[in-house]
Design a protein around this nucleic acid. Sequence first.
DNA 1: CTATATTGTTACCCATGAGTAACTTAAACT
DNA 2: AGTTTAAGTTACTCATGGGTAACAATATAG
Lengths: 222, 222
Amino acid sequence: MGNNIGGINRIGKTHNMIKKVKLLKPALGREEKRQLKLDAILRHAAAAFMEKGYYKTSLDDIARLHKVTKPTLYYYIRNKEDILIKCEAVASQRINGLLDDVTALDDNGFAQLKKFIEGYVEIVTDDIIRCHIRHRGQREDPAAREASLKMHREIEHRVREIIGRGVADGSLRPCNPTIIAILLFDALNGISAWYREEGDLNHEELVAQVLLIVTEGVKNKE
Amino acid sequence: MGNNIGGINRIGKTHNMIKKVKLLKPALGREEKRQLKLDAILRHAAAAFMEKGYYKTSLDDIARLHKVTKPTLYYYIRNKEDILIKCEAVASQRINGLLDDVTALDDNGFAQLKKFIEGYVEIVTDDIIRCHIRHRGQREDPAAREASLKMHREIEHRVREIIGRGVADGSLRPCNPTIIAILLFDALNGISAWYREEGDLNHEELVAQVLLIVTEGVKNKE
DNA sequence: CTATATTGTTACCCATGAGTAACTTAAACT
DNA sequence: AGTTTAAGTTACTCATGGGTAACAATATAG
């Protein structure tokens, strides 16, 4: 479906395993370990940001969660904002991955939209993604800010295209794809702020209700 | 429809006008003037918060916008957080006022929901309300936090009731009113983050699209 | 026209928290 | 071995910004 953090999709081949069997502890190359730790830091940070908010969370807080001291973090991140940027990269990959999957088959627009919604509700559960959704917009470095906006527009554009395709192929009724895409995103992103997997509301019911309102609307016809 | 800030709905009677005509400058009582200034400060603060965010906006920034110095603000507000609390009070009054209006007549649930949506899209344009929507959740004083949650739940509950009523009277199709209410709010609140009155998208089109998706859904039936 | 509350100012305090420098420990690689 | 590089630590600096004290001006009332 998506992919994981940096570049550790499969563990790096270990071409030296034949040479000598003295590598029992390493097992993971240093680069891989580094990526794993970065991922852990990101998760800790994201969890803290979701609980207390970006500004009320200090780097010391994050370091404490990770059981290291603050300066150590700087070995993995450039600065505080860089955490958000790295979360965004993860989010971008996951969401675009979903969109790739959804648009791969040549279903009609409605079917694709349905698949996207189902997948997105899944994605929106992840702490790193929730963190990104909540804090996208905090970027203060102008360049990072611009990059963030661009990636956001790109994703919105792809959903808009799905809707537009649906209108064209007749599977969706005539509507303004731009506005509908934005409204849909607002509702779906909102979910990330309140939905708890541990709660009594299960995934299926949630997805069903989203699909109900999006596809049929709530007005009774008879 | 709603009402304005503190308690200045009509200018306070001026029962002393007969006594002597030496009151030409005052015209507004001191209490009224104070409320007017508080309102202005709130608007300046809200505008700044919407542009730069709560934490990136200093009290000096707000003071500068209002053309006074920081300590002066403390004559009108208790502290920085108090600004958010006061914005919330305004928002609460406006939204509950709308709900009062909407539920006053005994239309069916669908008609009431429609009216609410139309009114809410209007409300969500105001800077103070936008500010509240964006920053509800930042409250750090536990008491204020609790009060905020309570008022939020109350409003959500009233909308849920409208939907429940609609399901009961048959004007809305069977659905989970709790989830639908939340999704609806997410979408509507989202509007406050991107919609600009000066933009090329006019109110009517926006409302029409929201109603389209909420009432009919986007799936084509034929 | 003075007395008094209301607004506002200048000049400060001080907690917080991001980021850095310099040093120590642990691991890896011939 | 023993040297290099990665990983982490303690102990700082330093800007920012919320909040306050003490003082100055202005208006309202008697």
